[in-house]
C-alpha cells in the first residue's frame, strides 16, 4: 500500500528533488516498484487514449452560426418591446412569497440565520441523507471547512489516508479533504454534529 502511494506521489509530482532521486534509485533496484510504476503509467496512457476520439466536425463549423442565432433570438425575447412586463415577474414573486408565508414556508429562513430550523430539519433526515448532503457541502465549501469542524475519528481518517506531510505549507487541512474518505468515516450522528459545528461557525 505504502509503495503504491509512493508511486502515486512520484507521478503527481509531489516529491522533492531529493526524494525524487531517491525514488528513482530505489526503482532501479526494485523490479516490483518499477512494475508498479509502469502499470500506473500504462493506465494513464490508456485513459488518455480513451479521451482522444474523433468527433463530427460539423458541430464546430455550425457552432458560431448557432450562437449568433441564439444571441439574436435572446435579444428579441427581452422586455424591450413591453417594458411593463419587466415588473411583472418580481411583483408576482413577492406576491407568491406573502401568499405562502402564512403556511409556514419561508425560503429565506436559512439566509436570515434561522439555524435552529435548519438543525431541526437535519435531525429529521435519515443517516444516509445527512451524509449525502454533507458530501455536496464538502465539495462546494472545501475552501471554508476547517478540520476543527470534524469529529475526531473523521479528522484521524483524513490524516491516516493522506499523511501529515501533505498538510505542509498550509494552515488548512480542509484543503486536502477527500470527500469520499471523509464520508466513509462519519456516521449519521457525526454528520449531524458537523452540521451543528458549521452552523455555530456560521458556515451554514
Amino acid at each position: 500500500m505504502k509503495m503504491n502511494d509512493e508511486v502515486l506521489r512520484y507521478l503527481a509530482g509531489m516529491l522533492s528533488e531529493d526524494e525524487k532521486k531517491k525514488f528513482e534509485l530505489q526503482m532501479e533496484n526494485s523490479p516490483l516498484l518499477k512494475e508498479k510504476l509502469e502499470k500506473k503509467e500504462r493506465y494513464l496512457r490508456e485513459l488518455k487514449a480513451l479521451g482522444s476520439v474523433e468527433a463530427d466536425s460539423h458541430y464546430f463549423e455550425n457552432l458560431m452560426p448557432r450562437l449568433r442565432q441564439k444571441m439574436a433570438s435572446g435579444k428579441k425575447k427581452s422586455f424591450s418591446f413591453y417594458p411593463g412586463l419587466a415588473y411583472i415577474i418580481p411583483v408576482l414573486a413577492i406576491a407568491l412569497f406573502f401568499l405562502i408565508k402564512p403556511f409556514g414556508f419561508n425560503p429565506f429562513n436559512r439566509a436570515s440565520g434561522s439555524s435552529a430550523e435548519f438543525a431541526k430539519e437535519v435531525s429529521r433526515m435519515n443517516d444516509r441523507t445527512k451524509v449525502e448532503i454533507l458530501g455536496s457541502l464538502m465539495e462546494n465549501e472545501s475552501g471554508t471547512l476547517q478540520a476543527d469542524i470534524l469529529p475526531e475519528n473523521a479528522a484521524e481518517a483524513v490524516e491516516n489516508t493522506m499523511g501529515e506531510e501533505l498538510y505542509q505549507g498550509t494552515d488548512s487541512k480542509s484543503q486536502y479533504l477527500d470527500t469520499d474518505e471523509l464520508l466513509n468515516s462519519v456516521s449519521g450522528d457525526e454528520a449531524e454534529s458537523i452540521y451543528q459545528n458549521m452552523i455555530n461557525k456560521k458556515i451554514l
Binding site: 502515486l8 494513464l44 501533505l166 486536502y176
Partner: peptide, 12 residues
Amino acid sequence: KANYFHALKKVT
C-alpha cells in the same frame, strides 16, 4: 497536487 494524488489513486 493533493487533489491530483487522490484522483490518480482512484482512477488507477
